[in-house]
Nucleic acid binder design. Structure first.
Length: 829
DNA sequence: ACGGGTAAGCC
DNA sequence: GGCTTACC
C-alpha cells in the first residue's frame, strides 16, 4: 500500500525512538498505526541568552544534551514589536523542562528569560507541524503526512466579520463539516482478589487479578477468571462467555492480546487502577510485550485509544454542558444510575476471597457493561464530542478526554500563536507589562473583582412575561470590544483614551492587536450562524446530529472563554481583561434596562445577561432589540415567553411556565438534587398543578389543589407512609475525609461512620443519609430504621422548600398544615 | 484545577 | 459568621 488514510488521534514522545510518534486510526480496516516523525523535529525553548553563551551557561551534563542553537524572529504581542531570540533545541524533551535538572531552570537561574519551555513536547510537535488531531490525513509509506487542502470561501453570512476573524473561520469550517469516524470499541473492567481491610494498590500489585470482563460493540461479552475451585459455568445466563485460567500469567496474556485488538478502549478509572495494575502484574509474572504505556497519571495503549470515563465524567464542562448536570457524584454507580437508569448491584462484602468465582464474574461483567454503555451513550455522542473538542483545541484525543476546559482553551490559543510565529508570552510577563491590579470591588469576600448584576426580583405572580437575553454575552463582549490580555493596556500612547468603562483605568488597543478576540468572535459566529441553524435545518439525520454536537462543543469553549482570563493558574491570566469584561456586561445590562424603561416597559427581574419584561407586545420587544443593538453593537434577543412566572423575593429563584406549557424551575430548593425524593415528589406534583394554569382566574382553583397536595404529603410523613430511601439526602463528598478539619458537616459525619464500618469512602462519592432523633442527628441510609426518623426535621425541610413558592402565591405553609396540626401532629410531637 | 453572585443548612 | 454544597 503506498498511500493510506489515517485519522490522527494523538502524538506522543517515544523514549525508545527518541522522537515524536503520531497515532492514526485507519478507517478502512479499523486498525491503529503509528508513524514516527521523519522531519527531525526536536524539543526546544526560546531564550534571550546569546547563542554562544549556552555551552558555558549550562552545566556540562545539560550542555551535552544540546542539539542545535539558532536565532529566530518572533512577534512579541505584549510590546507590539518583532524580537530576535535564541532557539535552543535539545536531544530529548526532559532536557528542556520537567526533569530535576533542566535548561529552563538553569537559564532562569542565570538571569535569562525563557519562553515556551513548559509546553509538553507532543503539543509542541502538533503546533509546529500544523497538525489537527481528530482529522483525516493521507499517509505515505515514507511517513509523510498530508491533509488535503480545502480552501473554503467565507460564506456570505460572515461578511460582517473582520478579516482576521474571517481567516480563522475559513480554517475552521472544514474541521467541523467533516464527521468523525465510527470506531469499534471495548469496555474493560478488572477485579483483584483483595481482602476487606485493604483496597488493592496498583503501585504494590501483590494480589492476583481474579477476573477481567470485556464487552464490545459487536455484542461480545466475556469474562476471564482465575479458577479457584468450585463449579464454574462456561456461560452466564446473560450470554457472557466465561474463560477459565489456572494460571494468572496466561489470563493476563490473553486479556492484553484481546485489548490490543480494539482501536478504542473504555475503562472507568483505568488510568489509575485497571491499566497500571494489569501492566505491573504482567511485568511481575514475566508476561512480555504489553501494549500499555504507563505515565505518571495516565495509561496509554500503543494499539488503540484508551478513554478513562472516570476522568471524562469528572470534567465539569462535560458534566454541566454535555449532560446538563444530570449526575451528581462521579462513581460508576452514580453516573450510570443517573444517565442510564441502571444502578449497580453491590456485593454483600468487599472481601473478594469469600465471593465465589461465578458471583465475582457477574459483578465484574456488570461494571464492564455499564462502562460500555456510558462510553457509547447517545449512539456514540461522547466520541463524536471528543473528536470535535480535539479539533477545536488541537489537542490529542487522549489529552482532551483527560484535561479540563482551561487546558483546551490554552492549547487552542497556543496553536494559533505558533501558526503565526508569535511569541507565546509568559504569565509573569503579561502581569508585568500589562498590569495585574484590579480596580472593582467584589461583593463576595475573597474574590478579585466585581462580577455580574443580579436585579432584585419583584415578588409575586406575573402574567405575560418576555425573557430577553444577550446570547453568549461574555464572548460577544470580547468580540465586540476586542478585550483580551493582548489588547488591554497596550503599549500605544494613542490608545490610552480608549477606555470603554469610565470607572476603570484600563484602556483597549484600537490598532487591531491580538488574536484571541477574533478567535472567540469566529467561534461564536460560526456556532450561531452556521451550526445552530444546520442542527435545525439539515435533512440527513446523521448530519443533523453531527451539527448539533458541533454547536454544543463550540458552546463549551465559548462558555469558558472569559472565565479562564480570571483564573490565576491560566498561563494567559489577565485580571484587568477579566474585570473589564464583567464591567462591560454590567454596562450592557444597565443600558438595556434604561432603554426598556424609556419605552415604558416594566423590568421585573434580570440576572447577568437576561431581562424579564412584563406585559410587552411583540412589537415592543422588537423595538427594544433594535434599540439595544444600535446603541451597543451586541444582540439582545427574545429567548422565551412566559405565560406566567412566579418570582420569589430571593434572587436566582423562580418558576415560569412558557406559552407552550414548558415549566422552568431555577434555583428553587425543590429542584436541588440533594433533597430527599419524598420532598422532591411533593414538589413535582405541585409543579404539575401549576403547569396547567393558563389564566389568573384558574389560579384560585390551582392554589386549593396545591394546598391539598402539600397536606397529603405532610399526612404521609406523620403516618410513616414512606420508605427510608425516599427520605435520604444525597450530598457529595468533594474532598477526602481527612481534609475536613475546620468543621464536620453532616455528610462528613456520616461518611466517617461509614468508614469506621470498613466501607470505602472517597472524594467524589455521594453520601446518602437520613435525619434521625438523637445526638448525632444523622445516620447512613443503610443503617437507619424508620422508627428513628426525625419527622419534625423533615417537616421543616418541606416548609422551607415550599415557602419559596408559597410566599409569592400569598399562601402560608403553616396555615395549610394547621388543619392537621390540631388533630395529629400536635399529639405526635 | 474557567469566573463571580446567591442561598441554605449546619457548626 | 464561617464552612460546605448546590445552583444561576
Amino acid at each position: 500500500m503506498t498511500n493510506r488514510r489515517g485519522i490522527l488521534l494523538s502524538v506522543f514522545y517515544s523514549g525508545e525512538e527518541k522522537s515524536a510518534v503520531m497515532k492514526f486510526y485507519d478507517p478502512d480496516n479499523g486498525e491503529i498505526f503509528l508513524i514516527r516523525d521523519n522531519t527531525g523535529h526536536k524539543p526546544y525553548l526560546l531564550t534571550n541568552a546569546p547563542p554562544d553563551s549556552l555551552e558555558e551557561v549550562l552545566s556540562p551534563s545539560l550542555a551535552a544534551r544540546l542539539y542545535r542553537v539558532t536565532r529566530v524572529r518572533k512577534f512579541d504581542v505584549l510590546r507590539d514589536r518583532e524580537v530576535e531570540l535564541t532557539k535552543v533545541e535539545a536531544k530529548d524533551p526532559l532536557a528542556i523542562g520537567g526533569s530535576s535538572r533542566n535548561m529552563r531552570e538553569e537559564l532562569t537561574k542565570r538571569g535569562f528569560n525563557v519562553w515556551e519551555a513548559k509546553i509538553k513536547y507532543y503539543d509542541c510537535y502538533v503546533y509546529d507541524r500544523g497538525l489537527i488531531p481528530g482529522c483525516s490525513y493521507q499517509v505515505d509509506e515514507s511517513g509523510d503526512v498530508s491533509r488535503p487542502k480545502r480552501e473554503v470561501p467565507v460564506p456570505p453570512e460572515f461578511s460582517h466579520l473582520d478579516d482576521k476573524a474571517k481567516e480563522i473561520l475559513s480554517s475552521m469550517i472544514p474541521l467541523f463539516d467533516e464527521p468523525s469516524p465510527r470506531m469499534k470499541s471495548v469496555a474493560v473492567d478488572i477485579e483483584v482478589l483483595s481482602t476487606m481491610d485493604r483496597m488493592p494498590d496498583p503501585s504494590k500489585p501483590d494480589k492476583p487479578v481474579a477476573a477481567v470482563a470485556m464487552v464490545d460493540s459487536d455484542g461480545m461479552k466475556e469474562i476471564h477468571v482465575l479458577a479457584r475451585g468450585g463449579e464454574i459455568p462456561d456461560e452466564l445466563p446473560s450470554g457472557a462467555r466465561i474463560l477459565k485460567y489456572e494460571n494468572e500469567g496466561r489470563l493476563i496474556r490473553s486479556v492484553l492480546d484481546r485489548i490490543s485488538q480494539y482501536p478504542l478502549v473504555f475503562t472507568y478509572n483505568g488510568d489509575n487502577f485497571d491499566m497500571p495494575y494489569l501492566a505491573r502484574r504482567a511485568r511481575e509474572l514475566g508476561v512480555r510485550d504489553w501494549p500499555v504505556r504507563l505515565e505518571r497519571d495516565r495509561a496509554l495503549l500503543d494499539t488503540g485509544m484508551h478513554v478513562d470515563l472516570y476522568k471524562l465524567f469528572s470534567n465539569k464542562s462535560i458534566q454541566v454542558y454535555v449532560f446538563n448536570n444530570r449526575y451528581l457524584g462521579y462513581t460508576l454507580d452514580e453516573v450510570a444510575e443517573a444517565l442510564l437508569g441502571e444502578g449497580k448491584i453491590e456485593l454483600g462484602t468487599r472481601d473478594f476471597y469469600s465471593v465465589g468465582v461465578r458471583e465475582l464474574a457477574e459483578y465484574c461483567l456488570q461494571d464492564a457493561e455499564l462502562t460500555f454503555k456510558l462510553g457509547n451513550i447517545g449512539d456514540g455522542e461522547l466520541i463524536r464530542l471528543l473528536f470535535l473538542l480535539s479539533r477545536i483545541s488541537k489537542m490529542s484525543l487522549e489529552e482532551v478526554s483527560r484535561q479540563g476546559v482551561s487546558s483546551w482553551i490554552r492549547n487552542m490559543i497556543f496553536y494559533e500563536y505558533r501558526r503565526r510565529n508569535w511569541l507565546i508570552p509568559e504569565q509573569n510577563e503579561i502581569k508585568a507589562v500589562r498590569g495585574e491590579r484590579t480596580y472593582s470591588q467584589a461583593i463576595i469576600k475573597g474574590k478579585k473583582y466585581m462580577g455580574a448584576i443580579v436585579l432584585e426580583p419583584v415578588p409575586g405572580v406575573h402574567f405575560n412575561v418576555a425573557v430577553m437575553d444577550f446570547a453568549s454575552l461574555y464572548p460577544s463582549i470580547i468580540g465586540r470590544w476586542k478585550v483580551s490580555f493582548e489588547t488591554i493596556n497596550c503599549p500605544h500612547d494613542d490608545c490610552r483614551d480608549n477606555r470603554p468603562v469610565e470607572e476603570l483605568p484600563h484602556w483597549i488597543c484600537r490598532k487591531g492587536l491580538g488574536i484571541v478576540p477574533y478567535l472567540i468572535q469566529a467561534l461564536r459566529d460560526v456556532r450561531v450562524r452556521r451550526y445552530k441553524r444546520r442542527a435545525r435545518e439539515e435533512k440527513d439525520e446523521h448530519m443533523r446530529r453531527w451539527f448539533d454536537t458541533v454547536q454544543r462543543s463550540l458552546k463549551v469553549f465559548l462558555n469558558a472563554s472569559y472565565g479562564v482570563f480570571g483564573y490565576e493558574n491560566f498561563p494567559l491570566y489577565s485580571p484587568p481583561a477579566a474585570e473589564t469584561i464583567t464591567a462591560l456586561a454590567r454596562k450592557a445590562m444597565l443600558l438595556s434596562i434604561e432603554e426598556a424603561r424609556k419605552m415604558g416597559l416594566e423590568v421585573i427581574y434580570g440576572d447577568t445577561d437576561s431581562l424579564f419584561i412584563k406585559g410587552a407586545s411583540k412589537e415592543e420587544v422588537e423595538r427594544l432589540e433594535e434599540a439595544v443593538e444600535s446603541k451597543l453593537g451586541i444582540d439582545l434577543e427574545l429567548e422565551k415567553w412566559y405565560r406566567y412566572v412566579v418570582l420569589s423575593k430571593l434572587k436566582k429563584n423562580y418558576l415560569g411556565v412558557t406559552v407552550d406549557g414548558v415549566i422552568d424551575v431555577k434555583g428553587l430548593l425543590g429542584k436541588k438534587r440533594n433533597i430527599p425524593l419524598f420532598v422532591k415528589r411533593a414538589f413535582d406534583e405541585v409543579l404539575e398543578i401549576l403547569r396547567e394554569v393558563e389564566t389568573p382566574e384558574q389560579f384560585e382553583e390551582a392554589k386549593k389543589r396545591v394546598a391539598e397536595t402539600i397536606r397529603s404529603y405532610v399526612k404521609r410523613l406523620e403516618e410513616g407512609d414512606f420508605s427510608l430511601e425516599d427520605l435520604a439526602f444525597r450530598t457529595m463528598l468533594t474532598r477526602n475525609l481527612d481534609s475536613y478539619k475546620k468543621t464536620t458537616p453532616q455528610h462528613v459525619k456520616v461518611a466517617r461512620m461509614l468508614e469506621s464500618m470498613g466501607k470505602r469512602v472517597v472524594a467524589g462519592q455521594v453520601i446518602r443519609y437520613v435525619k434521625v432523633r438523637g445526638r448525632d442527628g444523622v445516620m447512613p441510609l443503610e443503617l437507619a430504621n424508620k422508627s428513628q426518623i426525625d419527622k419534625e426535621k423533615y417537616l421543616e425541610i418541606m416548609r422551607t422548600t415550599f415557602e419559596q413558592i408559597l410566599d409569592s402565591l400569598d399562601m402560608d405553609f403553616d396555615e395549610i398544615v394547621r388543619g392537621r396540626r390540631s388533630t395529629s401532629l400536635e399529639e405526635f410531637f
